[in-house]
């Protein structure tokens, strides 16, 4: 594992509020950037999924068809498809342009917590409270998943896909990494229920936040602890964590209404972003720029490194 080299100039952190978007869709359960960071998706508790322009904050499309609150969404690499999962136990594949449901897949026994496309958007992977990850083929019309990964002993709270690797975090306190190329499953025991897992941008580390209010950076290959980040509050809720665009900082939601930002190497809190009074539910980092999305209650806030000068909509 190579830590990113210290940079001469201070890192640019998304500390200026650029825009606040009131999504008008109930509580925003998750907010996600698309693959290139130009658009963002918000999952509402009013069963709708909305697509926004990240730069203008304009609503582009609303996708309705879920039967209960939408919990997670992801966009394909070519922006032609969206996938979302919901508490109605279904996984839905959307056509971006028409807003129609391309496929609605039932199979999970409980609410589906998280969903991701693989790199080529040929497979959707969904993790559910029933403790399974199901791999759905987007190419075929089959209603059954390609494979069901039922190794977890409790609900899946988070999953990520990078290249040929699948990372899942489960409430049974384990982070599982499925290596398709090697045909191996690596199980890392964390102990406390996992709320969110991430790969680092360089693909060498995994980040996992758990209900014992700590975020841990583990070496992907050996499972050794590289860093532990504490100070925030996370005892009850499923909150997100992520790494900054250059792996320099670790960010996590907190129940005290802040987003905590730690220096990855030093482990010290470099930024405590006051988002609001309530719980910061979800956050998403721009893939290439220092830009952050946070979701609190019904609003989504967009944060950037520099204050936006002329065209601030507020």
């Amino acid at each position: 594992m190579a830590f990113p080299e210290p940079r001469p100039q201070p890192d640019r952190l998304p500390q200026h509020l650029l825009r606040t978007v009131d999504c008008q869709q109930g509580a925003v359960r998750a907010v996600r950037f698309n693959a290139d960071g130009n658009y963002l998706m918000t999952c509402g508790s009013d069963k709708s999924l909305k697509l926004w322009s990240a730069s203008r904050g304009a609503l582009l499309k609303t996708y309705t068809g879920h039967g209960y609150e939408v919990l997670d969404a992801d966009g394909s690499y070519d922006n032609s498809q969206l996938c979302s999962c919901s508490a109605d136990k279904t996984v839905v594949l959307w056509d971006v342009a028409t807003g129609q449901v391309t496929r609605k897949l039932r199979g999970h026994a409980g609410r589906v917590n998280c969903i991701r496309f693989n790199e080529e958007a040929t497979v959707m992977l969904s993790g559910s409270i029933d403790g399974t990850v199901r791999c759905w083929d987007t190419r075929s019309r089959k209603m059954e998943p390609i494979q069901k990964l039922d190794e977890a002993r409790d609900g899946i709270s988070s999953l990520k896909v990078v290249a040929h690797e699948l990372l899942t975090g489960s409430v049974d306190g384990r982070v599982r990494r499925y290596d398709l190329r090697m045909g191996q499953l690596h199980v890392d025991f964390i102990g406390s229920p996992i709320t969110c897992v991430c790969f680092s941008q360089d693909g060498q580390c995994t980040l996992s936040s758990s209900l014992d209010a700590s975020v841990r950076l583990l070496d992907k290959n050996t499972g050794e602890l590289l860093g532990e980040y504490t100070g925030h509050q996370n005892k009850d809720y499923k909150l997100d964590c992520c790494l900054s665009e250059k792996d320099t900082h670790v960010l996590s939601c907190s129940e005290d209404g802040h987003v905590y930002c730690w220096d990855l190497v030093e482990g010290s809190v470099t930024l405590k972003l006051p988002v609001g009074k309530a719980v910061v539910q979800s956050l998403s980092f721009h893939p290439t720029e220092p830009r952050l999305l946070t979701a609190m209650e019904g609003r989504v806030q967009i944060w950037g490194a520099e204050p936006e000068e002329m065209d601030t909509a507020e």
Partner: peptide, 20 residues
Amino acid sequence: DYEEFGPRLPPPGQVFPSSS
């Protein structure tokens, strides 16, 4: 009758009173 376990979702707040 809706079952849930695992880490919960945060409360929706006042924004959307009808949301569960």
